[in-house]
């Protein structure tokens, strides 16, 4: 599940994080690839199967 809370993007129940850099974060959630694009992106918090992203988020895209 992915939702936006204040200035964070929170993800619950992800399968795998594929890529992390300051402009893109790609992860797999529910067999879908999700791309979070922006500037100065940081994984603020990660524990078990939930994490949150902060930074200047421009867009979130879903791919099959």
């Amino acid at each position: 599940m992915i939702y936006i809370e204040n200035n964070k993007v929170k993800i619950l129940g992800y399968q795998k994080i594929c890529q992390v850099n300051d402009k893109n974060i790609i992860f797999i959630d529910n067999k879908k690839n999700i791309l979070v694009e922006g500037n100065d992106l940081i994984i603020d918090y990660l524990e078990n199967d939930e994490f949150s992203i902060i930074g200047m988020i421009k867009k979130i895209e879903f791919y099959d």
Binding site: K16, I17, V20, N21, D22, L41, I42, I43, D44, Y45, L46, E47, N48, D49
Partner: peptide
């Protein structure tokens, strides 16, 4: 690395490249 961290149930903060 993140797979291993998830498997071992380790908490991390402010991960950045």
């Amino acid at each position: 690395i993140l797979e291993k961290i998830k498997k071992e149930k380790i908490k991390i903060y402010k991960l950045k490249q």
